[in-house]
Design a protein around this nucleic acid. Structure first.
Lengths: 151, 151
DNA sequence: CGATGTGTGGTAAATAGTGGGTCAAAGTGG
DNA sequence: CCACTTTGACCCACTATTTACCACACATCG
């Protein structure tokens, strides 16, 4: 389980240093092999340990090819998924097309989100977060599981 | 499993260089023998390792010959399927009729899509992608497997 | 104060991308 | 049936990029 938010800098080559506190866990669970793809609902990237990603990919691949909604998801998610691995000093090279998609420049934010990480442009994340906070808590439209959740 | 997007240039002879990161996998799974055909639902090409294609072709051939929809699919898919192989420097020569169909000129995009690749004109893919992103995620019309899929 | 670990940047060697040239084969027309 | 044209296969070489590796600086902790 990955947790927490981290402010990271992208270097001139488009590399980001993975926060040190996650490195051991990543080395253990996937020998530093990761997959990064886009989030279809927001301009951010999703970063999975390879085994976690493969589970998702299998499900996506099994969807019927002639269903347009399925094709859309396949093209967006699998189409943008890229294998990357941590280099000797714990950095990831993010592919240029994905950097563009998420509008990443110098400053970015890496967030642990359970089995995966999310990577945001710092600017974008801050405004997204402010939006979330501003929509105060109208609990309508929530799935039942959430209506009854006790924090 | 093939994944990821790649921006590629077509040279003056209509050849495209296969991204290096896929070459080993392609050599292993099909000795560089591939089949390219059209996608009937979009102006793009589909590129399969030969063994994968043969599975699909068998299924297509098994469809009832007197069903017009089946005949349509057979004519379009099997009719346009062409054997091609990687040359010594990892390039493919795309047949002119298929290049026309997918409106490929200089710049194109190769996307890994699981067992196959999709080949798009860069321009076309970008607008298709923007459309997909704009249709935010109306989960209507999606198979149940997808409704409950947790990324 | 020293040692260890982390973030950062630079460099060099390997490799991928690109272009072109030649030869063979197939198609076309006289 | 032959000649000419066009197209595809194969090969080679140059250039640019990528990626792996190394080295340093800074901060933190013992």
């Amino acid at each position: 389980m990955f947790r927490g938010v981290n402010q990271i800098n992208l270097d001139a080559k488009g590399r980001m240093a993975m926060p040190a506190r996650y490195r051991e866990q990543i080395a253990d669970c996937c020998e530093n092999e990761l997959v990064v793809t886009i989030d279809t609902e927001a301009r951010c990237l999703l970063l999975y340990p390879l085994p976690e990603w493969e589970v998702i990919e299998k499900k996506l691949e099994a969807l019927p090819s002639f269903n347009p909604a399925a094709r859309r998801i396949q093209r967006l998610l699998i189409g943008h998924a890229t294998d990357i691995e941590l280099d000797a000093s714990g950095r990831l090279l993010l592919p240029a097309p994905l950097r563009d998609y998420a509008m990443l420049d110098k400053k970015l934010v890496v967030m642990g989100q359970g089995r995966k990480f999310e990577i945001w442009s710092e600017e974008l994340w801050n405004s997204q977060r402010d939006n979330y906070l501003a929509e105060s808590d109208q609990t309508q439209g929530l799935p039942d599981e959430l209506q009854t959740l006790s924090l």
